[in-house]
Amino acid sequence: MQLIEVQAGNCTGCRLCEMACSLVHEGECSTARSRIRVFRDEEFGNNLISVCLHCADPCCVESCLYGALNRDSATGLVGVDTRLCIGCGDCIVACPLSILDKDRATVLKCDLCGGDPECVKVCFSGALVLKDLDPGSPARKSLRDKTSQHLQQMQGTGKPGSRATSSL
């Protein structure tokens, strides 16, 4: 099936993919509401790209207690039913490649824009390419594991600041 191949080595860190994704899905530009995320490495450019890989054995689906996540047997895509999702974030713990929208208490999942993803169209560095791929291939699994590990390490050290202020 046609999926996004991620070649993070080519990524220049421009994050146009995030801008285009949030623009088509939300009608506004926001990296926090983009289904695809780029985490820049300022020192050597070893950027990290995080986007749902639509795995053949999606651990996010397994982790959801509310049946909000499902793998569509016809399209092969993993999707979220926002009516059922409560934004608990269990799926993000199981696999951190999707985005939790805390404000609206729901998880954001790449829907491949119905087969013609905008992020791929605005990627000029060759980091995102639409290709015929087997979602269950070992390469795909290893990409998921590596990215997850990297993300978990990052998120282990970091979450947005939360200290209150009285200045305003």
Binding site: G9, T12, G13, C14, L16, F44, G45, S125
Partner: peptide, 12 residues
């Protein structure tokens, strides 16, 4: 090492 882009730049 490699090219780098600023925010929203297709040129890098």
């Amino acid at each position: 090492v490699k090219n780098k882009a600023c925010s929203a730049c297709p040129v890098a």
